[in-house]
Design a protein around this nucleic acid. Sequence first.
DNA 1: TTGTACGCGTTATCAC
DNA 2: GTGATAACGCGTACAA
Lengths: 352, 352
Amino acid sequence: MTRQNNQTAATPQGARKSTGLRQVAAIAGVSTATVSRVLNNPHSVSEGLRTRVMMVIDQLGWVPNAAARALSSNRTGAVGAIFPTLGVGDFARAIDAMQDALSARNYLLLLARSRYDADLELVQARKLVERGVDGLILVGRTRSAEYEQFLDRLSIPYLNAFVYDEATPAPCVGPDNARAMAEMVDYLVSLGHRRFGMIAQTTRNNDRAAARRDGVRDALARYGLAIQPQAMAEGEWSIAEGRKLLRLTLEATPRPTAIICGNALLAIGAVLEAAAIGVAVPEDLSIVGYDDTEMMSELPTPVTTVRVASEQVGQCAADLIIDMLEGKSPVTGARIPSEIVVRQTTGPVPHK
Amino acid sequence: MTRQNNQTAATPQGARKSTGLRQVAAIAGVSTATVSRVLNNPHSVSEGLRTRVMMVIDQLGWVPNAAARALSSNRTGAVGAIFPTLGVGDFARAIDAMQDALSARNYLLLLARSRYDADLELVQARKLVERGVDGLILVGRTRSAEYEQFLDRLSIPYLNAFVYDEATPAPCVGPDNARAMAEMVDYLVSLGHRRFGMIAQTTRNNDRAAARRDGVRDALARYGLAIQPQAMAEGEWSIAEGRKLLRLTLEATPRPTAIICGNALLAIGAVLEAAAIGVAVPEDLSIVGYDDTEMMSELPTPVTTVRVASEQVGQCAADLIIDMLEGKSPVTGARIPSEIVVRQTTGPVPHK
DNA sequence: TTGTACGCGTTATCAC
DNA sequence: GTGATAACGCGTACAA
C-alpha cells in the first residue's frame, strides 16, 4: 500500500490523514480512546461528549474498520457455519433464521458449504478459522479423527446442529432424528402396517440420515419387524431419485405396504411415481416423508411427514453460540421438537 | 485483550511470544519479510529458503491472521453478495456456483439477504463494506437515490447480477428477462393464443420481475394484443399463491387461453390448481413458468418454462468481480443466455 | 535475493 | 470520566 513516510508533509488542509477514528477524535476535540468508548461502551462516556462525538461520526460518515478492530480486540464478531448444502428446504430455512438471530445481536454469518464431503468440510472449517470467526456452527456430530483433533485444539467454541445427543463434547441443537422416525413407525404400525420399505438418504457423511434409518430399524425391531433387504434403498436428494427408488422397493416380495422416505425430495418423487405407475396412495400403499416443505402439502395427494422446526434450529444455534462466545452461564444444548403431520398419503394397511 | 508490556520478560523458552509470522521467521532463521514473501510472492524467494520456511510453517501449523493481513494490505480477499432470498431455486444455484468460483480464486463469499426490502439491502451493503469486502455482487439494477449515492462514493467495485443492460454504471451479469419473456410470448402466439393472463411476481423492489412483466406486455403489444386487467395478477413466490392467482385470472371474461407465470413456484401452483379444479392442461389452458427447477419437469404434467443458466450467472459474476478487483482489462458485463423448454403444459389454442 | 523498520486503524491499560 | 500510548500481526518501501 502507499505509505506516508513524511509525517510532517503539508496536506492541503494542514491536517494529517483522511481516514479514521483519529480524525473523528481530532475534530470532536477528544482523545481516540473516547471515540472508541462511545462506540463500544457508550455508558462510560459523559452524555455531552457522547453526543458531540456521535455528531462528528455521522457527519463524517465514518465507519470503523473491522480488520483493525479485530486485530486489536482479538474478536471479529463473525460466526462461521458449514452446511452440507444451502438450497435444500430445512437448511435454507435454518440459515435464514440463523442470519436474523445473529444480525440481531450484531454478529455476521460466514457461510460455507461442504457438499457432504468430509474433507472439504475440514478445509472450509480451516478457512473460516483463518478468517477469524469467533465461533463455529456445524451440522451433525460425527467426524474424522483429524477433524475432531482440529476442533479440540481450537480456542473458539463450536456446536453441532440438526442432531441431538447429550453426550457430545460440544452442545447439540436439533431434533432427535431417530426418535422422530420411531414415532412415525409407531403411527404406521398402529395403522396395521407390517411390511415396510425405506428410501433413505445416503448415509455417507451424514449422521442425520443414518440416525433416521436406524431409528426406523430399531423401532421396527421393537415390534419384531424388519425391512427386507430388497425394500431398503439409499439415494441422493432428488425427486428423480425418489421415483427410481420407489420402483425398486416395490419389487420386493412380498411388497411393502408402507414406504418411509428419508427426506422431502425423495418423498415427493415417491408419491409422484406411485401416481405415475398406478399404485393407489394410500389405498394400496402408504408413503411418508421427512421434513415439511411447502410442496409436501401442495401435491395432489398431500404427504404425511415429520415436521421439524428448522427455523428454531437456526435461531437456537445462533443464540447458543453467541452465549458461548460471551461466556453466558453453563450453556447446554437444546432438543428441538418434531411432530408428525398426518396428511393423505397414509392409511390403513390394505386387506388382501 | 491481555497485553505484554514487558518486552524482555523471560518466557519459559526464553523466546518472546507464541503466535505469528515472527516466530516462524525466528525458527527458520530468516526475516519476517521473507516469511511474508513466501506466502504472498513465492517466486521472489530462493528455493532453499522457501522450502525451509514452508516446513517450519506447517510444522508449527501456523495460520496467518486475516485481520492483520487485511489491515496491512488494505484488502480482505472477501467478496460480498446481497440476495433477496437464499432458498429459492435460481438464487440457490447461483450462490453455489459463485462460492465455488470465488473459492477457486482464493476469495471468500460473504452472503447477506435483503428479503426484497430496499432499506434492508442498503443496511446490509453498509455492513458488508464495514467488514471490508473487496467487492460487491448485487441483484438487480434499480435502487433508491440514497443507495445509488452510497455505491458511487464507494471505492470498491460492484456489479448487478440477474439482469442485463449495457447502459448501467456498473457491469451486469444476467439474462435479459424481458427478451426471454418476449420469446415465450412469440411461442404462445405461434400456437394460436390471443387471450393471455399473467401471474407475475410482485414487482416491488424487484426489477427482474418488472422486466418480465413488461417483456410480456411489450411483446403482446407488438401483436396488437394486451392482457385485460382482471387477468393480470401479482403475488409472492409460493405455490399457494400460484393456486390462488390462477383461480383469479381464470375469472376474467373472456377467459384467457394461456397463463404466463413469473416464477417457478407460481407456475407449479398454477398447474396444480388447474388439475385440482378440473381445467385440462394444455387442452383447455396453456401454462408457462420462468426458471427451470427440478419440480418443473417432475410434475404430473411437466411444465413449459424459461431456463436460465443460473449457475453461469453465479460463476460469471464471481469471475467478473475478481477481474475488476485485480484490475484486469476493461471489464464488461455478460448477457447470460436463456432458452424456452417446451414440455406438456402448452398446446394449441382450444377451438371453441 | 534478503533484511530492517515502519505503519495499517483500532482497542485497552494505565495514570490522571 | 478522560487522555496518552503501547500493542495487535502482518505487508512492504527501502536499504543492503
